[in-house]
Amino acid sequence: MELLAIFISAILINNFVLHYFLGICPFLGVSKKLDSAISMGLAVTFVMTITAVVSWIINHWVLIPYKLEYLQIVSFILVIASLVQLVEMFIRKTSPPLYQALGIYLPLITTNCAIMGLALLAALKNYNFMETVVFGVGSGLGFTLAIVLMAGIRERLDLADVPEPLKGAGIALIVAGIMALGFFGFSGMIK
């Protein structure tokens, strides 16, 4: 039950984009088309899950035993950067079409603050190993949900009669704000 609560909470209630306002850059940058939004969401989910696992291992096996918790940020950056590199190489080797489809978004994940936030939050909340994994998957899916919803809305917005000064980024930010308000409706679900 506890795991399910963490999962649901990561997707809906504590959604990384709409609750913590992390990962806004890809959320606004890659949400113009539904296809690329889905690819980006899945790539982020993938990296988030692996990051959650590896950063948990480093945190609990290395940093905490030696009382080096203050090195969390630096070591997590190390983890994320190398993981993204690894994932990039792996995808390029095994599935060139997927590599082409993800394009620039893959290396961009390195600098996605949602990933860093995930690693730090999992450490802050003192999750055990399984909880961290579930938290990572849930957060990734939450990001995917948010970015796909946003892309769907923005594809329709392209055809809508938007006032001149609000076109482009302006209306996108307003939409993001309204979506965040909407997601706050979930906040009473889990105590």
């Binding site: 290395v62 080096l68 090195l71 630096v74 190390l78 190398s82 590199q85 690894l86 792996f90």
Partner: peptide, 19 residues
């Protein structure tokens, strides 16, 4: 901390080189 970070960095970079 210096050793920890050094070893971690070495591990990751050698992992990347192998990969």
């Amino acid at each position: 901390p210096i050793l920890t970070m050094g070893i971690l960095g070495l591990l990751f970079s050698s992992g990347l080189v192998l990969a």
